[in-house]
């Protein structure tokens, strides 16, 4: 059985009655996961590698570009600061082998930018901005 919306869209019957419980289950499950990852050494390994990559991109941008003409396909450091990094997203990508030691060696500014655009969730930035705004207001 389904409930029909006037635009032709339907939903399974009772969908909204059970949604709250499904959300609670998901929150509990994610809380258990997120508490444990900080105690894993691999989290800090991934975080360190990412910090090195960011430093490398920063070095490349400021020092190498000052020696040669600026090219449009180089990432701008202020873009990185704007996007901010969600460490959980990067950690999961590392653990799922979408980031490997080899790929880090081959990483250039363009592919890093593509990764940020594809994988980093804008909501995490908005929530960060909201918190930042609130802190400034206090």
């Amino acid at each position: 059985m389904t409930i029909k919306n006037k635009n032709g869209f339907k939903i399974p019957e009772g969908y909204f009655d059970t949604l709250s419980n499904k959300v609670q289950d998901k929150i509990l499950s994610e809380q258990n996961t997120s508490h444990s990852i900080f105690y894993r050494p691999s989290y800090w390994v991934a975080a360190s590698i990412i910090a090195i990559v960011i430093s490398g991109v920063g070095y490349f941008h400021f020092f190498e570009n000052s020696k040669s003409n600026y090219k449009n396909n180089n990432i701008v450091l202020s873009d990185l600061e704007y996007y901010d990094f969600n460490m959980d997203d990067l950690y999961y990508a590392y653990n799922e082998n979408s980031i490997t030691d080899e790929s880090i060696e081959e990483l250039d500014a363009k592919s890093l930018e593509e990764y940020i655009v594809d994988e980093v969730n804008i909501n995490d930035i908005l929530i960060f901005e909201e918190q930042d705004y609130n802190n400034n207001q206090q």
């Binding site: 959300v23 998901k26 929150i27 994610e30 909501n123 995490d124 929530i127 909201e130």
Partner: peptide
Amino acid sequence: LQNTFVKIWRA
């Protein structure tokens, strides 16, 4: 929708 509510819960 579930992911949205999880993010709302966090923030």
